[in-house]
Design a protein around this nucleic acid. Structure first.
Lengths: 208, 208
DNA sequence: GTAGAATATGAGCTATTATTCGCTTTTAGT
DNA sequence: ACTAAAAGCGAATAATAGCTCATATTCTAC
């Protein structure tokens, strides 16, 4: 007996219709996360909001975790899309220019979808396969380290690994906190001021 | 009719025995959080680990949230206990000494119970009354700002609020990431190096 | 047009969790 | 020793979440 398991396939959308379903599910998950919070995001609710049946949900996703992972991935794609160009530019510049650009890019990245970013940071438990966020940060780290290597003569630092860790951590935390905790009260001028300060912080550190 | 609600009192431990029960419950919650993670921390499980019945749990805590809040509070008390002295000392020093001490203190704070701190940071959803963590950070911010005010002549900064935000955020993120993500691979020398770098980062920033 | 694959449905099963309440045991005060 | 309050118990209830599967609809290809 072949005993095909009806609910196994999970993700293999070939037709147009099914791709729309998958999209709707991911979108619904994101919406619920932002508007209602992580623990309101039950599979039933997601399916409901997506205008799809729970059965269909399980046809493409093995569970809630996978949905959230998909949301994270989609968000990261969007962030990279809007940031990739400027990031590349920055890598060609000398330290002071580059750092300032990096801080500005970090701010921009956090502004792509602040409310989603916030939920992902504050409510989504970092367990199981949801370590994607960390993987993402490790990419930043590696990228930055590479930059430092190729500009070593301009720098006053001993350990490049340590320096990368310090800089990436500081920039990330600064922009993260600024955008996510003062999002309402944050004018453009203040944003500029913050970028200046962040750049000064890191530049000063790198050049001794 | 008086209609006393049997399950209402919630927290009012006068006798010795009941205080022990409350302690056991908080301790059990902490243990489960660390060893099994946030979502294994059900009320039934907590009671079981505490060696207490669920009924007793609800006699002192209105629910799981309250238990976790108690754990957070207890942890913060412990941290302050081990750190208060050095923190006070730092406030009397000149900028370079003070900053270095602050970074060292931050490291020490994160080392009180790293595993618990990590769970609280990564798995406990910041909803409802669990904003205690933020309140705690705001205290740090205020304290630091006060210090800057009284040493303004030594500094090269425009906006003290902004500067406080930058420094506190950077120090917190640095020590947090260092202790929580490289906890295994972190020798004493590396720790010292990190403190040096953190101090250099912030001092350089404050003095231009 | 029709067969077979792909897709969609949703009632309902199972498991888990929070929470209650009638009852028993312990303690403090007299 | 006695009693009333305090503390403790845990089986039972209710709510909710995750997930399945028998069935129905739609699509693709010939």
């Amino acid at each position: 007996m072949v005993r095909r398991q009806l609910t196994k396939p999970r993700k293999a959308a070939t037709q147009e219709r099914s791709r729309a379903t998958v999209d709707a599910l991911v979108e619904a998950t994101a919406r619920i996360l932002v508007r209602e919070g992580f623990d309101k995001a039950s599979t039933n609710r997601i399916a409901e909001v997506a205008g799809v049946s729970v059965g269909s949900l399980y046809q493409y996703f093995p569970g809630k975790e996978a949905l959230v992972a998909a949301v994270i991935e989609r968000h990261q794609q969007e962030v990279m899309q809007t940031v990739r160009g400027e990031l590349a530019e920055a890598l060609a510049e000398p330290v002071d220019k580059a750092v300032r650009k990096l801080v500005a890019v970090a701010v921009k990245a956090h502004r792509v979808d602040p409310r989603l970013h916030r939920v992902l940071a504050e409510q989504v438990p970092r367990v199981g396969k949801l370590e994607k966020v960390e993987t993402f940060n490790r990419e930043n780290y590696t990228l930055f380290r590479t930059y430092l290597e190729s500009h070593r003569d301009e720098l006053y630092v001993g350990d490049l690994d340590l320096a990368s860790f310090v800089c990436v951590t500081a920039i990330e935390a600064l922009t993260h906190n600024a955008v996510l905790h003062y999002s309402g009260t944050l004018s453009e001028e203040m944003m500029e001021a913050l970028i200046d300060e962040g750049a000064r912080l890191v530049t000063g550190y790198l050049r001794g």
